[in-house]
Structure formats: C-alpha cells, structure tokens
Simulated scan of single mutants.
Amino acid sequence: MEIEVSAEAKDKSLNRNVAITVVILSVFMGLCGIKDGNIVQAMQAAQSASVDGWNEYQATRTKLHIAETSRVQIAALAADPVRAAPVLATIDRDIAKYRAEAPRLAAQAKAQSDQYDALNVHDDQFDASDAAISTAISIAAVSALAESGWLLGAAWAFGAFGLFMGLCGFLGWGFHPALLSGLLG
C-alpha cells in the first residue's frame, strides 16, 4: 500500500482538525502526566509507610511473644515468688502495652495499604488516558498523511476515551478500566 504525501494537502479542513486534535490532546496529556507523577509519589510514600507499619507491628508482636514466654519461664523457675513479683509486674505492664499497641499498628499499616490501593486506581486511570491519547495522536497523524476522515474519527474515539479516563483521574471518579489494567498489568 502506497500513501502519496504531497506538500499541498487536498483537504485543509482535515489538516486543521488534525492539528487542533493534536494540540488539545497533547496539552491534556501533559497535565495528566504531572498529576500522575504526583500520584505515583504519594503511592510510594503510602507503600513505604505501610511496610514500615507492618514491620513495627511484627516487632511488637515479637516483643509480646518474648515477654509472654519470659513471664512463664520466670514464674515457673522463680525460687522466691516474692522476689519475682516486681519482675513479673514489669513484664505484665510490657505485655499489656504490646497487646494495646499491636491492633493500633495493624490498623495504621492497613490504612496505608488501603490508601495505596485507592491511589493505584487513579494511577491506572492516568495510564489508560496516556495510552489512549498517544494512540489517538498517532492515528490523527496518519489520518493527515492518508487524508482520511474516518481515521480522524477513530483518533477522536481514542482521544475521547483518553479524555474521559484523565477526567476520572483528576476528579476522583471510581471508574476503573479493570479489563485494560488486567491485560496490560
């Protein structure tokens, strides 16, 4: 298949429409890129906080286990229960503290994980927007070369989907391209 490219296009309105399409989609894509970059930074912070939280939770659970084991051993092996009482009281306070801390730490870590998941939805929206708009711009360029109105229509369809996905990301809408994310993820 040969496409003849001439310096003088036959249909100036097609080229104007292509140019307007490319400008609008490129500007929107740039804005989406900035917002997506900020979301990715927030995702990294949430994931880091979640990992730190789960590590702190695990350390607290380990300290609880060690304190409980120590208490049992001291109580069993103490020759003089009166002398062991202050040590056991200190261990009991530690056990109570660890038991109180563990659920709070787990809840904080889970909240950070949930925040990551919520941000990931918007990251996926911006990724889908980027892919659709890039495809639209490519198709629009080919439509100008081939002087084909139907190709420009196809570019507009991809562009409309890309604009919709970008708006979903900006406005916090819950629409998620699960099928697309599943195929590409």
Score class of each variant (00 low, 15 high):
Ile3Cys: 09
Glu4Tyr: 07
Ser6Lys: 15
Ser6Glu: 12
Ser6Val: 11
Ser6Tyr: 07
Ala7Arg: 14
Ala7Cys: 14
Ala7Thr: 14
Glu8Tyr: 04
Glu8Pro: 00
Lys10Asp: 10
Lys10Ala: 05
Asp11Gly: 14
Ser13Cys: 08
Asn15Glu: 09
Asn15His: 15
Asn15Lys: 14
Asn15Phe: 13
Arg16Asn: 12
Asn17Tyr: 07
Asn17Trp: 10
Asn17Arg: 15
Asn17Cys: 15
Val18Gly: 05
Val18Phe: 01
Ala19Phe: 11
Ile20Trp: 03
Ile20Phe: 01
Val23Trp: 01
Ile24Ser: 03
Ser26Tyr: 04
Ser26Ala: 09
Ser26Asn: 11
Val27Tyr: 01
Met29Pro: 05
Met29Ile: 00
Gly30Met: 08
Cys32His: 04
Gly33Thr: 02
Lys35Ile: 14
Lys35Asp: 08
Asp36Ser: 05
Gly37His: 11
Gly37Tyr: 08
Asn38Phe: 11
Ile39Arg: 06
Val40Tyr: 00
Val40Leu: 14
Val40Ser: 05
Gln41Gly: 12
Ala42Pro: 04
Met43Asn: 00
Met43His: 01
Met43Cys: 00
Met43Pro: 01
Gln44Arg: 08
Ala45Phe: 08
Ala46Phe: 03
Gln47Ala: 11
Gln47Ser: 10
Ala49Lys: 02
Ala49Pro: 04
Ala49Asp: 05
Val51Phe: 08
Asp52Ile: 10
Gly53Tyr: 04
Gly53Glu: 00
Gln58Glu: 07
Gln58Asp: 02
Thr60Ile: 09
Thr60Val: 14
Thr60Glu: 08
Thr62Ser: 09
Lys63Met: 03
Leu64Arg: 08
Leu64Ser: 06
His65Ala: 15
Thr69Ile: 05
Ser70Leu: 13
Val72Phe: 07
Val72Ile: 13
Ala75Leu: 05
Ala75Arg: 07
Ala76Glu: 11
Leu77Arg: 13
Ala79Val: 13
Asp80Glu: 04
Asp80Tyr: 03
Pro81Ile: 07
Val82Glu: 04
Arg83Ala: 14
Arg83Thr: 06
Ala84Cys: 00
Val87Phe: 10
Val87Trp: 00
Val87Glu: 00
Leu88Phe: 09
Ala89Glu: 11
Thr90Ile: 11
Asp92Val: 12
Asp92Arg: 13
Ile95Pro: 00
Ala96Phe: 11
Lys97Asn: 12
Arg99His: 11
Ala100Ile: 11
Ala107Arg: 07
Gln108Leu: 15
Gln108Pro: 02
Gln108Lys: 14
Gln108Tyr: 06
Gln108Ala: 08
Ala109Gln: 06
Ala111Pro: 03
Gln112Asp: 03
Asp114Ala: 15
Gln115Asn: 09
Gln115Glu: 06
Gln115Arg: 15
Tyr116Cys: 00
Ala118Met: 09
Ala118His: 05
Leu119Thr: 04
Leu119Gln: 04
Asn120Leu: 14
His122Cys: 06
His122Asn: 15
Asp123Phe: 12
Asp124Glu: 13
Phe126Gln: 02
Asp127Val: 14
Asp127Arg: 12
Asp127Ile: 10
Ala128Leu: 08
Asp130Ile: 08
Asp130Thr: 09
Ala131Ser: 10
Ala131Pro: 04
Ile133Ala: 01
Ile133Met: 06
Ser134Phe: 05
Thr135Gln: 02
Ala136Glu: 00
Ser138Lys: 13
Ala140Pro: 06
Ala140Leu: 08
Ala140Tyr: 00
Val142Cys: 07
Ser143Gln: 01
Ala144Thr: 07
Ala144Trp: 03
Leu145Gln: 06
Leu145Lys: 06
Ala146Lys: 15
Glu147Tyr: 06
Ser148Leu: 10
Ser148Ile: 12
Gly149Met: 13
Gly149Thr: 11
